[in-house]
């Protein structure tokens, strides 16, 4: 369990953290998601003690660690660019935390072997980091962080330096590892897909503040505001309001569209649009439209729906929102 209360941190006039309070439940895998400069890395580094807060406190498992150096916080930290000890073998890298604690040799050897097996680097003991791929290096860094039995595991954009395929593999692997190890884990990412894929909970940060925190489904289905909605998942603009592209219903019949729309409380209305392009992407079909207001929008429909509509470029369709996000009901300012 990590509790951050009223965290403030400024660099000159730039407010990296502007009063952030967040609870991270024990055993969870929480993603801190936000654009660059949103303060997500600063928050993570403050939990680790690698940054000193200007104000506020950090409590890890009931112990107030504010002002305590990283050495004594019981953390494991994984960096985007691996931060491998280049002059040490894989074994020595992983053993580092145990070696400096002067644990018995046999215990170190057993623990390192066990961890290397968990991270799939068995047999790489005597290699140097330069002889590993990026993904292997990051798994070594994870094993190194886990070796000291940290109370919390902190990952700063851990897959950011890897290519797409390795990244996807590794985050699924991390998810499985977390399910086995159950250490409270905080992961920083700017990639909403990664956050949705791997995390139990997501905190969306923007301009040094937390916009919303919750389960991935809650954030996706019931975003607190436009920022969260547009940052997490795709959006289309319908009469100036944000709707998920798959929540837009297309109809050829004008009267039917208006009748259905009248039944949706607080709906943004119906727009008349011209079909620009119909793209088949396997299971789904993307329809690109230009509205009367000359606004561009993209709509996702199922293949069956697309076949039923039989749309061709140049034709006119009526688009409406199938339902409205809760945000419009909870925050009237959004429902203009």
């Amino acid at each position: 369990m990590i509790t951050v209360t009223g965290a403030h941190k400024s660099y000159g006039t730039f407010k990296a953290l502007d009063g952030v309070s967040v609870d991270i439940p024990a055993g969870s895998l929480t993603a801190l998601l936000g654009p660059s400069g949103s303060g997500k890395s600063t928050l993570l580094r403050s939990i680790a003690g690698l940054e000193d807060l200007d104000g506020g406190s950090v409590v890890i498992n009931g112990k107030d660690v504010t002002g305590i150096p990283p050495q004594q916080r019981g953390i494991g930290f994984v960096f985007q660019h691996y931060a491998a000890f280049k002059h040490m073998t894989v074994r020595d890298n992983v053993a580092f935390g145990l070696t400096i604690r002067k644990r018995p040799k046999a215990e170190i050897a057993r623990k390192v072997d066990e961890l290397l097996e968990i991270v799939g680097l068995d047999g790489f003991q005597h290699r140097y980091p330069a002889q590993l791929s990026g993904g292997q290096r990051q798994r070594m860094a994870l094993a190194r962080a886990l070796a000291v039995d940290p109370e919390v595991l902190l990952l700063d954009e851990p897959f950011g330096a890897l290519d797409a395929q390795v990244r996807a593999d590794l985050r699924r692997w991390l998810r499985r590892l977390h399910d086995e190890v159950h250490v409270t884990t905080v992961l920083v990412t700017h990639d909403q897909e990664e956050a949705l894929d791997v995390a139990d909970r997501i905190a969306v940060l923007n301009k040094g503040r937390i916009e919303q925190i919750g389960d991935p489904e809650v954030l996706y289905d019931r975003p607190a505001n436009d920022f969260v909605m547009s940052f997490l998942g795709q959006v289309a603009h319908v009469n100036g309001r944000l709707v998920r592209p798959h929540d837009i219903v297309l109809t050829r019949d004008r009267n039917e569209a208006y009748a259905a729309d009248a039944a949706v409380k607080g709906s943004p209305g119906v727009i008349t649009a011209r079909v620009d392009r119909v793209v088949r992407l396997g299971f789904e079909v993307r329809v690109e439209l230009t509205a009367d207001s000359s606004e561009q929008l993209e709509v996702q429909v199922t293949r069956a729906a697309a076949e039923a509509l039989a749309l061709d470029p140049g034709e006119t369709v009526y688009a409406r929102a199938a339902h409205t996000p809760d945000a419009w009901e909870t925050d009237p300012a959004l429902a203009i």
């Binding site: 050495q71 580092f96 190194r144 070796a147």
Partner: peptide, 9 residues
């Protein structure tokens, strides 16, 4: 920083 996080002074 990695060394510090692992407990090294």
């Amino acid at each position: 920083e990695a060394a510090a996080s692992l407990g090294a002074g």
